[in-house]
Design a protein around this nucleic acid. Structure first.
Lengths: 157, 157
DNA sequence: TTGTAATATGACAAAATTACTCTCAATTGG
DNA sequence: CCAATTGAGAGTAATTTTGTCATATTACAA
């Protein structure tokens, strides 16, 4: 009942990319290092984000990847489903996955409702907001740490 | 991002048990056959439901398992968490699982909210209702099938 | 008190999935 | 052509899931 590393890394990468102006170009190796993602693994994940139309990649010298659509039009759900396929809480919720009880199973209905709710939640925020919040909170957190350090130093004197 | 078979089987077994009066005693083998659950596997799952206080088991002749608390006080979430541990959508949501970004990561907040929502959903129905709906829908579905069969037969004549 | 009927437990094993790595191909700009 | 960059496919190691099996434990009843 958990996100895989693939999804986690995709989210991290996208948050990172969305923290910069939309036309910035990034190298995969750079994203990998800055976000503690295994380089080779990220190279398998980025193409998925390209195929789903979130990113655009160009090979060769001066190549790299960049946002294909604005961060304000991207939701976490889109990212997760790009790399992990459609979210489903139970095998019986996958279309075409045969479940003989589908017609009458009362739990099936509950799964369906829950799944819908999850999708709603993961679509309720867009990447521009999340990325922005992230940098703000990051800065505030480290500023606070720095302040505390200085206070402790002062108290010692 | 899916329920395991352990959770699925636990739910099936509990729905089955909750479809009978609360003081009924069941044998694991019987539950396994009726619900298409591998017998040996179910024997690993049932004790978990006992340990969490949903079921009560007695060994020996005339032994078996039965509900320890009324079906109306049991939610699907309780069953799932009994056998799979606490639901968590991401490693970083597990208590004690270290996540260095926890303090500022904006996605962390979204995960937390989503997780809460899921727990709410899976606690919104109780097993007495689900089990009852299940038998009703099951009967209705099979009655309908039978009716259709007879109609087709009549049309042929 | 002994046999039989039931669950409990722990070690083990097979299968599936996840999380990668590595090599080579394709593309682009200079 | 060369260097820089992504793409794709095969392969692999680690982990998790999904069980099995043998043995222990317990309870009743003759």
């Amino acid at each position: 009942m958990q996100l895989t590393m693939t999804g986690e890394y995709a989210l991290r990468a996208m948050i990172y990319i969305c923290s910069f102006p939309g036309d910035n170009v990034f190298q995969i190796s750079d994203i990998a290092i800055k976000n503690e993602i295994p380089d080779n693994f990220l190279r398998k994940i980025i193409p998925l984000l390209c195929k789903s139309g979130l990113l655009n990649s160009t090979r060769g010298a001066q190549g790299g990847i960049k946002l294909l659509i604005p961060a304000k039009d991207i939701t976490p759900l889109m990212i997760i489903e790009s790399v992990e396929g459609e979210i489903s809480l139970n095998k019986c919720m996958i279309a075409n996955e045969f479940c003989s009880n589908e017609n009458w199973c009362s739990v099936h209905v509950l799964w369906a409702e829950t799944q819908k709710k999850i999708k709603e939640m993961l679509s309720s925020k867009t990447m521009d907001v999340l990325a922005h919040d992230n940098t703000e909170r990051f800065n505030a957190f480290h500023l606070q740490k720095e302040t505390n350090k200085q206070l402790r130093k002062k108290n010692k004197e």
